[in-house]
Structure formats: C-alpha cells, structure tokens
Write a protein that binds this DNA or RNA. Structure first.
Lengths: 162, 162
DNA sequence: TATTGTTATACTCTATAACTATA
DNA sequence: TATAGTTATAGAGTATAACAATA
C-alpha cells in the first residue's frame, strides 16, 4: 500500500497505454488512406468488406455489431457497395425482415488486394523495430484483441445514477 | 514479385495493425474514464496536464502541437484548469503575445495520482498475457511512438491538387 | 506584415427518434 | 407486441474564419 503514498508525484516508467496506442492507430489508419483511395474505397467501406471477408456474417445488425458502428451508419455504405457489385444483399427466405449479406468475387478480390498492399507497408514500418519485440508486439496485440472488451474497460461504464 | 499475383484473394496471417490498435486504444481510454471522473478530470484536461508534466512546454501553440489538438480547442480547457488552480498561465515577459504555461503543485499531484491509478489498472490487464510478449509489446510501442509520424503515414498526405 | 491567443461560425460525423414491413 | 431495416432529424465534436494585441 505504500505505492499509494508516493503515487501523488512519482514519474511513471512508461506512458499510458491509450496515449501510445491512439496516435499509432491514427498514424497507421492515415497510412491506409492513399491505398484505399487507389482502390476507390473509403475507410468504412474497407472495414465492412474486411469484416465480411473474415467472418460469416448474416444480417446488417450483426455486421453493425461486429464493426462497432451504429446500424444506421452502415446503410449508405452498403448501398454503395451493392451498387458497385462488391456485395450481394438479399432477403432471408426464413425471415424476410432480415437482409443477408455476402461478398461478391470482385468484392473479395478488391479488399484482399487493398489489404495486401496495406500490410506490405506495415511490414516495412515493423522492420524498423527489433525482431523479437516485433514478434512479441504481434502476439500481444492478438491476445489483447481476443479479450472481451469489458476485461479491458472494467465495465464500470454506466453506474446507475438514481 | 509472385506475391503480387496471388495477393488478390489470399487470406493474411494477421489483421491490419490499425484494426487491432484502434479498438484497443478505445478500450483503454474507456477504462480511464471512471478514474478521471473520480479526479474531476475530462479526458482532454488529463491529456493537457500529462503533456505539461512530461514536457517543458512554453506556449499554448506548442501545447496544441504536442497534444495533436487544434489551438482553439484547448482554450476552454486551459480556462477551466486555471480557474481550478491546476495550472498557471502568464504572459511571457520576452514576448507579451505568448502565454506561458506551468503546472501548479496541485496540478502535478492530481494528474500523477490519476495516472498511477490508470497504470495500476493497465498492469492488471497486461498481467493476462505472456510476460515475454508483454515486455516486447511495451518496447515495441515505445519504439514506434518514438518514430516521427510521417515514417508511419508515409506522408503521401496532401498531394497538391492543382 | 506576421504571429499569439481569442471568439464566433460553419461543418462533419454520429447517434436518436420516428416510420415501414415483417414476424 | 417486438424486431430488421430505413429515413429524417438533432446533437456532439471539430475545424475554419475573422478579430484584437503584440512583434
């Protein structure tokens, strides 16, 4: 408990994780933009395509949950992707309220092509850090990403204020 | 060059870095919120205090650049912090346009106390991953954070569109 | 003329609420 | 009655533009 007593002024040995992660996420996202532009994709369109490519997703509601986006936000994106022939959207025969989503061949090809170029650039950046640290970074990121978000946030989210 | 030819459909061995980093940054930032609330700090107020604590910053313009925020955005935050006695703000005698900024004793104590609690929570989360990977993660994040942002973004930022 | 800080305004992004159709 | 998708509206957050003081 004595780390409590001197916690008031002591300098920490590292910066906060969010303070390091957020600018890096921003920088890598910025690095994606010219590549996505070259493939005529917005960031959200790319997120949707990759999510559909990596997971078998049925409805728009599930896609919204998987991407963390609001369900109303992905609608114009889906409209555009469908008009360009990158996804198929058709009513579920079992429940005609639901719209089933699927990548077309060209949708899969396009997002994988963009992703390959993005990750090639990322590897160039990662090549600048120590190989052992780089491997640890990738394993740690995968492990942290696999945790349920509440294990990180502590879900002290909305304490009911009565 | 043959990785070009099959890049169209091949599944990558990992997700994009931004796709992993952004949700983690979000989750760790969310974890900070209840702690900051307990110290009566907003996220931006905390960012300002930590930035002043970690770097010797003179003017508001330099603070804005260091935090990545627009100069107009930090003004109401500085007003509040000054009113609460957490920072001092006074004109530079050498150039009376410039407002010099400095943490007060209480400002330093408050942000270090919040930071200690934040990092204690972070360590609990980090304890869940392999110690070697955890060490590699922290070294890799420090190394990547030390890079100029343009080394990650590739500064293909604003191609002049004449 | 150029720069620091400030204020007021406009814009972008995102979520909320209201509606249709299916169940 | 409840849910999936859609549309229209309102709100939060952010940047842009105009201004005063100083150099």
């Amino acid at each position: 408990m004595d780390d409590q007593s001197d916690a008031g002024r002591a300098e920490p040995s590292r910066r906060d994780l969010a303070a390091m992660l957020a600018p890096l996420a921003q920088a890598f996202a910025t690095a994606e933009l010219p590549i996505l532009r070259a493939h005529n994709l917005t960031m959200w369109a790319y997120v949707v395509l990759i999510t559909l490519a990596d997971n078998p997703i049925r409805s728009q509601a599930r896609l919204a949950a998987a991407t963390g986006a609001d369900k109303t936000r992905i609608i114009p994106i889906l409209d555009d992707l469908q008009a360009r022939g990158l996804i198929d959207r058709y009513p579920d025969p079992a429940d005609r309220r639901v719209h089933l989503l699927a990548l077309t061949d060209e949708g899969l090809r396009l997002c994988r092509a963009a992703q390959a170029q993005i990750q090639r650039h990322e590897e160039e950046v990662l090549a600048r850090i120590d190989p052992a640290d780089r491997a640890g970074l990738l394993r740690a990121l995968a492990a942290l990403s696999a945790l349920p978000a509440e294990e990180i946030t502590g879900d002290h989210e909305s304490p009911p204020t009565p």
